[in-house]
Simulated assay, not measured.
Amino acid sequence: MLRHPSRRRGHDTVTDEFAYDALPMRVIFGVGAVHRLAEETRRLGIRRAVVLATPGQAGLAEQARGLLGGIAAGSFVQARMHVPAHTVVEAGQAATQLGADGCVAIGGGSTIGLAKALALRHGLPAVAVPTTYAGSEMTPIWGITDNARKQTGRDRAVLPRTVIYDPELTRTLPVHVSGTSGLNAIAHAMEALYAPDASPVISALAERGIRDLVRALPAIKADHTDITARSTALEGAWLCGACLGATTMGLHHKLCHVLGGRLGLPHAETHAVMLPHVAAFNLTAAPAARDALRRALATVSPARALAELAVRLGTPRTLKDLGVTGPALPGVIDEVLAHPYANPHPLNRESLRALLQNALDGSAI
């Protein structure tokens, strides 16, 4: 009988047998790439595109409309954090009134999340133009928040058909947003390293993406206009997002989804706070992931290195910094345990309480 060769490494089994599904999307990357927006939109057969953005990025929406020319049907600039259900309804009504047969999402995770919701509910194909390092554009994961509960799912129908990465569009991204957004991206790759459906392809992308971001983010902190650092960070975020799109999410994302949806916390800042604490919790049960992070971060203690990186970047360090109080934690724990994600470290109420308390107080790692 033929056997697939495998070998043990700590608690991980590394085997020559794995599955890897490449996600069907087109990527355009480069300084000035946004000027190909009309060409790429036409390429998809979109004749009337509604431009999506947040209120704070209405200027970017106008820029996109100008580049689209006659393809632009109008704008909806009310995208919101965590994709509220009522916003999805309003955006769908606007798209219908405009006669839109597709959309262009320009901005961060909130805007791209709205485009995904429109694809899910109305079948509108999307072109994504990311301006942060959120990585949502590379995943089939959607999320819609209703009554303080964030529902998430996976569906390839929500994938943007084309993603245009232009580092120039990130030059004006504030330093603190760059830092939290970059740590958010690193969290995507970290979870991919210990996901039950990880593969050598994804592990290689994850390690490279983390290394790029760790190198680029301090350089952006020193000079937010550094186009080389911006390009490196955006490429790293692309790779990290692709890792999240191809694997199963774990405890880190479950906690952030519950904290964000239940307490209305800012998405990237929540990821930045939770990242080192979840790393400290999970990596003892995932030696291969720990070793990859050691290489990417050039350290023997990945969790501590991630905490120190957050200090260097000046991002929020504790859940208290985000306005969370102790009485909110039991409800978060209940929701996480009610529908847990796959995770290398076993979960129970006491271990989750300790993890969240450490994140609340900013306890040393």
Results as ranks from 00 to 15, higher is better:
1 M>Q: 13
4 H>E: 11
6 S>R: 15
8 R>P: 06
14 V>G: 04
15 T>Q: 05
15 T>L: 05
19 A>H: 13
21 D>K: 15
33 A>E: 10
36 R>P: 07
37 L>M: 12
38 A>V: 09
44 L>N: 12
47 R>I: 13
48 R>A: 12
49 A>Y: 13
52 L>F: 07
54 T>Y: 13
54 T>M: 11
54 T>G: 15
54 T>D: 15
55 P>R: 09
63 Q>P: 08
69 G>D: 12
70 G>L: 12
76 F>N: 06
83 V>K: 07
84 P>T: 15
85 A>R: 10
86 H>Q: 15
89 V>K: 10
94 A>N: 02
94 A>R: 10
96 T>E: 15
109 G>K: 01
110 S>L: 12
111 T>E: 05
114 L>H: 05
117 A>C: 04
117 A>Q: 02
119 A>C: 09
120 L>E: 10
125 P>E: 11
130 P>G: 07
132 T>C: 03
133 Y>E: 05
134 A>K: 06
139 T>R: 02
140 P>L: 07
142 W>C: 01
142 W>N: 02
148 A>E: 12
150 K>G: 02
150 K>R: 08
150 K>M: 00
157 A>Y: 00
158 V>C: 03
164 I>C: 07
174 P>I: 05
175 V>E: 00
177 V>H: 00
181 S>E: 01
182 G>H: 00
183 L>C: 00
184 N>Y: 03
186 I>H: 01
190 M>A: 03
191 E>F: 00
197 D>A: 11
199 S>L: 03
200 P>H: 07
202 I>N: 02
209 G>Q: 03
209 G>W: 00
210 I>C: 04
213 L>A: 00
214 V>Q: 05
216 A>K: 00
220 I>P: 00
221 K>D: 01
222 A>H: 05
223 D>T: 00
226 D>G: 05
227 I>T: 15
227 I>V: 11
229 A>T: 02
230 R>V: 00
240 C>W: 02
240 C>G: 04
241 G>I: 01
243 C>P: 02
243 C>W: 00
246 A>W: 03
252 H>S: 06
257 H>A: 04
258 V>L: 10
259 L>A: 08
261 G>K: 13
262 R>K: 14
268 A>P: 04
279 A>I: 07
280 A>S: 12
286 A>P: 01
289 A>D: 04
290 R>V: 02
292 A>S: 12
296 A>G: 03
299 T>C: 13
302 P>N: 08
308 E>V: 09
310 A>L: 06
311 V>Q: 15
314 G>A: 03
316 P>D: 11
318 T>K: 06
320 K>P: 08
323 G>P: 07
325 T>P: 06
327 P>G: 11
328 A>M: 14
329 L>S: 12
331 G>R: 10
334 D>Y: 11
338 A>F: 14
339 H>R: 13
350 E>I: 14
350 E>S: 14
354 A>G: 14
355 L>D: 14
357 Q>M: 14
363 S>C: 10
365 I>T: 12
